[in-house]
Amino acid sequence: MIATGAVGAVGVGALAWPFVASLAPDAQTVAAGAPVEVDLAPISPGQIVKVFWRGKLIFVRNRTEEEIKAAQDVNLASLPDPQPDSARVKEGHPNILVVYGNCTHLGCVPLGNEGPFHGWFCPCHGSVFDTSGRVRGGPAPINLPVPPYTFVSDTKIRIGEESNAAPKAAHA
């Protein structure tokens, strides 16, 4: 009886797996996650550009001197999700900030240059982000994450590939 039940349970589980797995991102969607290149030259200081990688919105922000300074001169202990600005940009390129463009609360697109820290402000539920994309108020639990990207030249980045990593097939 127990053996029969166990075999039955395994069988049901084995049959259920393909049904669940079919709901995951399919091969086409995964393949569409190949790295994208962004030319930084046309992005002037203070400007935010929106690009898509793997269907997800990404902000590329060319920060002004004041914005960089504001992001660096922060008492880390006062942040909900403490992270120094230097850990959120690539070395030698403090002006270029690349972050995911969906609020970490429920996924709305925050408005650039808005809110008390002039970083981003989410109109949906009031989350506030600073010029480093770090959460400073509202219901968002964590900072806007930094996607994997690398500088291929001084004026070009490739999103979807981490620095110094050998090119590899993108996967989920």
Partner: peptide, 17 residues
């Protein structure tokens, strides 16, 4: 969320299901 979306964000697979 990924199983709901069928992708990395709300998109065509989400609409279809």
């Amino acid at each position: 969320v990924s199983l709901l979306w069928g992708g990395y964000s709300v998109g065509n697979p989400t609409l279809n299901r």
